[in-house]
Design a protein around this nucleic acid. Structure first.
Lengths: 114, 114
DNA sequence: CCGAGTGTTCGATGAATATCTTACAGTCCG
DNA sequence: CGGACTGTAAGATATTCATCGAACACTCGG
């Protein structure tokens, strides 16, 4: 067998937005949600490309979860890649931080969600 | 006549929240609104205690405006004081920046609102 | 080729909230 | 005191958006 990172997905590739093209308003709106904050925090605590969408501990169904990831992609916060039947994620730390310095750190550092 | 900064208002004093008591989620939610971003930016460009609530160039009625200032107070972003019939404002730069370093700068520095 | 697993899409629902209109409560000036 | 001005409060409306359930699409392993 050759590849296990199956590069030949026939599925619709997820639509990504470059952080450079994201407005402050979009970025803040994406981060102003408790579920998405949890996703980002868990993602930050995991190795890159190791977390599939369904592997997060959030109290919502998979439809809502799919929606949240769509918002995060649209804000340039998350990158996704198909790996077999799963869709694995990566937090775009450097790229997002270059566009909005300190913003991601604020969300990750805070100990409260309230 | 003694004082022109009339400290004896018989009106209900505005309720303020210390930035230290504000959660990240509350802060982000308060900032994730185009009208409130404009208010904050105009406020940042003006001298302290010079802008009354009605003096801002935003496309909403005064009732909605009053609501927005209430949200900004609740997020520890704005301080208000009664001065005669007017209510003048101050951006709590240092205090808010101590709680959320860099966040206010991001909103003020960005050239887009989209 | 079937079945389990994973994620998206669609339509509907419900909650949060931004807004307006109207009414009211103060402050100041004549 | 009465009227102009400033802002708040309350109620109604509308829009946005988070959520769910169900149906669908794709991948992989028997």
């Amino acid at each position: 067998m050759a590849k296990q990172t199956a590069g030949a997905s026939h599925r619709a590739a997820p639509v990504h937005t470059d952080p450079e093209d994201v407005s402050v308003l979009t970025a803040l709106s994406a981060l102003a949600d408790p579920v998405r904050i949890r996703l980002i925090r868990e993602l930050a605590d995991s190795a890159v490309w190791t977390r599939s969408c369904g592997s997060f501990d959030v109290p919502v169904g998979k439809a809502a979860l799919s929606h949240h990831f769509s918002v995060l992609r649209g804000a340039g916060l998350v990158e996704q890649r198909d790996e077999g039947p799963k869709r694995v994620n990566r937090l775009r730390r450097e790229e997002f931080d270059a566009r909005f310095p300190g913003l991601l750190d604020l969300v990750l550092r805070a100990d409260d969600v309230e």
